[in-house]
């Protein structure tokens, strides 16, 4: 790792990272804050019961039995995934594909640092941002539990599990995004590969949940590994899932750094 580059890149990314973190933290607190007013509402319960099972599955809503299930369904089920994925794809693109495409990578590589060092530093910047977003979301969840929702305790352990698996999901997504960004000569191409891949994965998961016949599609999707509603109910063996996501991400980053070190650069 190169300290100067890391510091500079973190500074350059700070605005983005802070806005994603604050946005995510604010939203989870908001969801938690409205929980008490909905928890005892018979109308909502009846409404949920009337919705088809598939639809609830699509949005990862398992129930409203407690605060954790509510947060898992209302926040982690969709918006969290969206925020994290967008950060992974855009940040990987900005850190690797853009400097390669625009040529500014030449200045960094002209310094006596190996390509591995440069790529590794950029990867670390990406992961630092990701960690900041997930950690601030987790912290906001705990804070909301402590101050906003007094009559329903959050299952802390399972809430942490959701966040750990969530972080690893993004580790995997950022891993392949980083790989595409390190490989491409063209910023747009990198963006369409990592963005397109992610949308495809998400659609597989969605279709698999909607139609039983197509459930096998979910096995081809990275998003099937993250089931916040089921984690909240304690129905997930989360360790194997974690290892799988960890492996996907590690392969993405390692391959990305490895290919970047050996490729021709149009600088």
């Amino acid at each position: 790792m190169n300290g100067s580059l890391y510091k500079h890149m973190i500074k350059a990314q700070a605005k983005t990272i802070v806005s994603y973190s604050v946005g995510s933290a604010f939203y989870i607190a908001l969801i938690a804050a409205i929980y008490p007013s909905l928890a005892d509402s018979e109308a909502i319960k009846n409404y949920l019961q009337q919705l088809p099972d598939q639809l609830l599955k699509v949005f990862n809503i398992t129930g409203m039995g407690n605060l954790l299930e509510f947060i898992a369904g209302e926040y982690y089920g969709l918006l969290f995934i969206l925020i994290g994925s967008i950060y992974c794809i855009t940040a990987a693109n900005q850190l690797m594909a853009r400097p390669i495409d625009r040529g500014s990578m030449a200045y960094l590589l002209a310094t006596p640092n190996s390509r591995r060092t440069i790529a590794f530093t950029q990867a670390l910047v990406l992961l630092t941002g990701l960690a900041a977003i997930v950690v601030s979301t987790t912290a906001a969840g705990f804070a909301a539990d402590a101050w906003l929702v007094t009559d329903d305790a959050l299952d802390r352990e399972r809430f942490l599990e959701i966040n750990v698996v969530g972080f690893l999901l993004f580790f995997a997504i950022s891993g392949y995004s980083f790989f595409f960004s390190a490989m491409a000569n063209d910023e747009k191409r990198a963006l369409s590969l990592s963005g397109g891949g992610t949308v495809l994965f998400y659609s597989f998961d969605l279709i698999g949940k909607l139609t039983e016949k197509a459930e096998w599609l979910r096995y081809g999707s990275i998003f099937a590994a993250f089931e916040p509603g089921n984690i909240a109910q304690g129905q997930v063996e989360w360790l194997p899932v974690c290892l799988l996501l960890l492996a996907i991400g590690a392969i993405g980053y390692t391959a990305g750094i490895g290919f970047f070190a050996k490729r021709d650069l149009p600088l």
Binding site: N2, G3, S4, L5, K7, H8, A12, R98, P99, R102, G103, S104, A106, Y107, L108, T111, P112, N113
Partner: peptide, 20 residues
């Protein structure tokens, strides 16, 4: 000429000096 984005001349020179 393609410099990294969003920096002043001095910030770039400082970055490169640091990396060197």
């Amino acid at each position: 000429i393609a410099f990294p984005e969003g920096m002043t001349g001095m910030e770039l020179l400082d970055l490169l000096a640091g990396m060197r």
